[in-house]
Write a protein that binds this DNA or RNA. Sequence first.
DNA 1: GTGGTGACGACAC
DNA 2: GGTGTCGCCACCA
Length: 110
Amino acid sequence: MTNKNFFENVYEVVKLIPQGRVTSYGAIANYLGAKSASRMVGWAMNQSHNLPEKIPAHRVVNRIGLLTGQAHFWGESMKELLEKEQIVIIDNQIQNFEKVFWDPNKELEL
DNA sequence: GTGGTGACGACAC
DNA sequence: GGTGTCGCCACCA
């Protein structure tokens, strides 16, 4: 998993996020062994739409479950995409964030 | 090659 | 408890 760049790993983890779940930049960064590199995760998401692969970037939010990248999102709205996955969002804030939170450290193990 | 920046997070003050 | 600052790694000018 960590054979590739930090960058590549981000995409792999994001692609593994199950539908109806979300995770945080920090959780992904932490899973990759660089808990402070959460910036890179978000930055990777920025480039994700440029990739041939489909990256469910809308399932990645910041630590508090806030859709910070919504304005940055191309085309669709993160909110709508997440709502289609039965995730409730109020004022860019994911409700029941603890319930829908998907921690790669727990789900995938390291 | 250097510096600045970025969809964040944690700590210090 | 709110604000400020640094760190982290990769990319662009």
